[in-house]
């Protein structure tokens, strides 16, 4: 059952990213390029995605567990720490340079050509070394 929901969710996610245009790097770079040819499409995507999710979070409040019996993820109420901010800044810089974030990088692999594969390969290497980099930078974390 949980594999079927993962399949449906992944298929919807990939379809949504493709339909919305987020797999086109120029759409993402256009959103971030406030001083150039600014493209507000990403705000529509983000706004659209929030609607079902807000409803979903409300529904979780009325359920004791997810359909597969798992507990819902607790809200992390801790404050924003240097790790969160540093990671987000590094991510934002890479996001702008290529115009890709993790979801769209996978959704665009089938047609994006060698540069998209290169991006994903580098991203996987980054993810592999992330725990080491993080513990070096934030010794107490």
């Amino acid at each position: 059952m949980y594999l079927l929901t993962a399949l449906i969710s992944g298929a919807l996610f990939g379809a949504g990213l493709f339909i919305s245009g987020m797999t086109d790097t120029s759409k993402v770079q256009g959103w971030l390029d406030v001083f150039g040819a600014w493209d507000p499409t990403l705000a529509f995507v983000m706004g659209g995605a929030m609607i079902p999710m807000i409803i979903a979070w409300i529904i979780t409040g009325r359920m004791t567990s997810a359909l597969n019996g798992a507990q819902f993820p607790p809200k992390n109420t801790s404050r924003a720490d240097p790790k969160l901010i540093t990671g987000s800044v590094l991510f934002g810089a890479g996001w702008a340079l290529a115009g890709l974030c993790p979801g769209p990088s996978i959704a665009s692999l089938s047609y994006g050509g060698p540069m998209h594969w290169t991006f994903v390969a580098a991203m996987l290497v980054g993810m592999l070394f992330a725990p080491m980099v993080t513990s070096r930078l934030f010794k107490n974390a």
Binding site: T5, G16, L17, I51, M53, N68
Partner: peptide, 21 residues
């Protein structure tokens, strides 16, 4: 298309959350 795709992305997140927690 952005709004439509966004709604589908949100639906994907809702399925994953409500189905698999």
């Amino acid at each position: 298309m952005g709004l439509l795709g966004g709604l589908i992305i949100g639906l994907a997140g809702a399925v994953y959350l409500l189905g698999n927690g």
